[in-house]
Simulated assay, not measured.
Amino acid sequence: MSNDVKPGRAAAIKSALESAFIALLASGVCLWFLISETQASDDGDPAKLTMLAIGLSAGLCAHFVYMAIAAKRAERNATLWVILMVVLMPFTSVVLGILLFNQVQEIEQQAREEGGAGSAA
């Protein structure tokens, strides 16, 4: 991690994080409907089940990609984090999300402090 303060970098990381969590939300909705559709009847509509499964997998893939983009923008090892996310899905996503969110807050705090110090001089 570098210590240079770039508020634009914080916004880029935050944008990728938001996109990752929206993709995770979309895949969660697909999982919810997939489970409820299979529980509602013995003979679920195959086309509907297939589309929900495709939506679930596409949402998870998008989540992995956006988290990798956020990790790369934060100057972390994106490959390692994606491998960990695939192996330990819910836990690694939460840990990486918290780490990146805290890093964004630190970058924004440093930018505010430098902005305040620059206007005081």
Rank of each mutant, 00 (worst) to 15 (best):
A16Y: 01
S15T: 01
S2E: 14
A111D: 05
T92Y: 02
S57N: 07
I13A: 08
W32L: 09
V94H: 11
G97A: 15
G59L: 10
C30I: 06
V29L: 09
D45K: 10
A53I: 03
F33L: 13
I69F: 03
I83F: 11
D43E: 14
L100S: 04
L56C: 04
F33I: 10
L34M: 14
V95C: 12
Q105W: 01
M89T: 05
L34Y: 15
V95L: 14
G59F: 12
A74W: 02
I35A: 13
D45N: 14
F64N: 10
S119H: 08
S119D: 12
P90K: 06
G59C: 14
L84G: 15
L56K: 07
A12C: 02
A20S: 07
A68D: 01
K14Y: 03
N102C: 11
A78P: 02
L49N: 02
K6W: 07
A10D: 01
G44L: 15
A11K: 11
W32E: 06
P90F: 05
S2Y: 07
L80F: 08
K48V: 08
I54V: 12
F21V: 04
A117E: 11
L96C: 13
Q110S: 09
W32G: 05
R73S: 02
D43Q: 13
S36V: 06
T38H: 13
S2I: 12
S15I: 00
A70I: 00
G55S: 14
A58T: 04
I69G: 00
